[in-house]
Amino acid sequence: MKRYFQVVWAVLWKDVRIEWRTKDMFTSMAVFAVLALLIFNFAFELRVPDKRMVVPGVLWVAVAFSGVLGLGRAFINEKDKGSLAGLLLAPVDRSAIYLGKMLANFLFILVVEAFILPLITVFFNVAIISLPLLLILFLGTLGFSAVGTVFSALAVNTRAREVLLPVLLFPVLLPVLLAGIRATIGFLEGETLVDNLNWLRMIGFFDILFLVVAFLTFDYVVEE
């Protein structure tokens, strides 16, 4: 078991180190998120009486679309540079490689979220940052990364990989996104964590489901 987690840590640390040097993923995700926020800000400027009505949707759409950019790069970089075969040749349970890549994606998306939350507060003049919201974002991002990492590995071997990932991912992710948006609406309207427990449970359920399915299928997904 110790060896398993050594591999998870090695893969995670490798991805973090490369991202720290290149900033490839963060730059594309952050720029995309800022542009999305700006466009939403201008689009809703004239027509929406209370911006709190649109902020939950804006937040989750920005997270989902910028996140999908990052997830897409996760395996494309490995595949294009040939290093994916190097990972798969390691004498380890391939779920350890999945877990390392998934945790790296999870971390990168969390960093982008930390970057866009203050921007939403500034652009929309809505105090959005709160502990319950951070919790729901954390859980939603976990589910997003769990299923997104598998689909990213699946899409990388196809010709239309850039298009295929969102096409596969968003329908599956819909319950998590909807629950996340509903809970965020509740928090902005002053509801407590207990009031939104059902939404939290729903996200938690899908997180576990996505993780279990990903663990069971990753080996087949990456094999020819």
């Binding site: 060896r3 050594q6 591999v7 840590w9 090695a10 893969v11 490798k14 180190r17 490369i18 040097r21 290149t22 540079k81 040939g82 290093s83 075969a85 190097g86 990972l87 040749l89 390691a90 004498p91 380890v92």
Partner: peptide
């Protein structure tokens, strides 16, 4: 293989250390 299975943005030592950890 003809593709080196290495990471361009890691140093030579970092690449080998990473794979050494994968091989335990």
């Amino acid at each position: 293989s003809h593709a080196p299975l290495l990471y361009d943005d890691l140093s030579a030592a970092e690449n080998l250390e990473f794979y050494a950890r994968l091989y335990g």
